[in-house]
């Protein structure tokens, strides 16, 4: 398996795991109606979310440097696709409730961190899947 595919699987696994953990954390904080000074819970959930994001961002240049030119093209194409997916997903998830419920209705506060988490996850998911699909298409066609 090439370094690019390994990186895609790793990012997918780490992001999924951290998002699940963060989702459970938020669900717990919501259930106990935590607010104000619940620093420990908020810090743990934030660490689950931010650690993989910073890791991927900080190691991105190192990752790209070890790729050859074709892999860099695949990586950047997948990154562009994930940016589009992020935009459309965020637009949809923010605008659809407004259209469906009307501007005078309210949504619960826990929806906001869930929107944030799901947007991060969908963008990373799209990025990893785009890399894996491009690699798999070439492998199948080349035989």
């Amino acid at each position: 398996m090439s370094k690019l595919r390994k990186a895609a699987w790793f990012n997918l696994a780490v992001t999924t795991g951290c998002m699940l953990a963060a989702g459970l954390g938020f669900a717990f904080l919501t259930r106990v109606n935590a607010k104000g000074v619940v620093y420990v819970g908020i810090a743990l959930v934030s660490a689950c979310v931010l650690t993989p994001v910073f890791y991927v961002l900080c190691h991105r240049k190192g990752f790209e440097a070890s790729f050859d030119e074709r892999e860099k093209m695949i990586y950047r194409r997948a990154f562009a696709l994930s940016a589009w997916v992020l935009m459309f997903f965020l637009a949809g998830i923010c605008i659809v409730p407004f259209l469906a419920l009307g501007g005078q209705n309210v949504i619960r506060a826990y929806c906001l961190p869930l929107i944030f988490l799901s947007t991060l996850f969908v963008a990373q998911f799209a990025h990893s899947v785009a890399i894996l699909i491009q690699c798999e298409r070439e492998n199948n066609d080349g035989r």
Binding site: S2, K3, D68, R70
Partner: peptide, 22 residues
Amino acid sequence: VGVTRQTILAIEAGKYAPSLPL
């Protein structure tokens, strides 16, 4: 030439056009 085997495979199959240096 300093690339992966998959890149050579893609070039041979006509799926990828190499850069000038490559």
